[in-house]
Simulated scan of single mutants.
Amino acid sequence: MSEVEKNVKIKLNSTILPADGESETYELWLSGTYIEKSGKTYLRYEEAIDENKIRTTVKMDNENALILRSGGVKMRLPFNTLQKEGGHYETQYGTLPIVTQTHQLTHEHNEQSVINGKFHVQYDLIISGQSVGKYTLEIQYSEGQK
């Protein structure tokens, strides 16, 4: 099976509604790579927060998805519309188990003349049995024109 790898521009919108606070929204524009491998679709990008570089891989599907982060932040964040999923977030004090309860998950992809698409997930983040907030993540990507 062939592998497709293309440079893409990525617009990332993240909204966090903490259980005890006001909503926060972040928007990032990044350069990344779109990868199709063994029938699976991935986005890879790198962001810099404070002095740390964070490498992120998003494995996208319509029923489940996975966000893996490494570097300045180490995290495994799985999404499944049918059941709660366990992941983890590594801190300087140790590994914190986290759970996601996915409410909505879509991945729209178009490959007519250039690759573009949109990945959207809405979920509750659960730590120690308590929801710490409702999260919405939307990633739009399109093949970069060189």
Rank of each mutant, 00 (worst) to 15 (best):
E108H: 07
S23F: 01
T25N: 11
P97V: 03
S14E: 14
V99F: 03
L77S: 02
T100K: 02
G144Q: 14
K146V: 13
M75Q: 14
N64D: 15
L17D: 11
S113H: 11
I127F: 07
M1A: 12
K74D: 03
P18M: 03
K134Q: 12
E111G: 10
D20T: 08
H120N: 11
V8M: 05
R44S: 04
Q83I: 11
E108V: 13
A48M: 13
M60C: 10
T41F: 07
H109F: 10
D50A: 15
A65Q: 10
G32H: 12
Q101F: 02
G144P: 00
G129R: 05
L17F: 04
K146A: 15
Y42L: 06
L105V: 02
V132A: 04
Q104W: 12
H107M: 08
N7I: 14
H107Y: 13
Y26L: 08
E111K: 15
T56S: 12
L125G: 06
E85G: 05
T41W: 02
S31C: 08
Y34I: 06
E51Q: 14
V8Q: 02
T56E: 08
Y34Q: 04
E138P: 00
G133V: 01
A19P: 00
S23W: 01
S131I: 03
D50F: 07
S31P: 00
I127L: 10
L82C: 02
L28S: 06
F119A: 04
Y26P: 00
V114M: 07
V114D: 10
G87E: 05
Y93E: 03
Y123L: 01
I115D: 05
V58M: 09
K84G: 12
I16V: 12
S31T: 15
Y93S: 02
A19V: 10
S70E: 13
I35R: 13
N80A: 06
E3W: 10
T33F: 05
I115V: 13
Y42M: 06
Y93A: 04
K74N: 03
H107A: 07
N64W: 10
K134N: 14
E36K: 10
Q145M: 08
K74R: 13
I54L: 05
Q130N: 14
Y89E: 13
Q83L: 06
V58C: 06
E47A: 07
I10D: 01
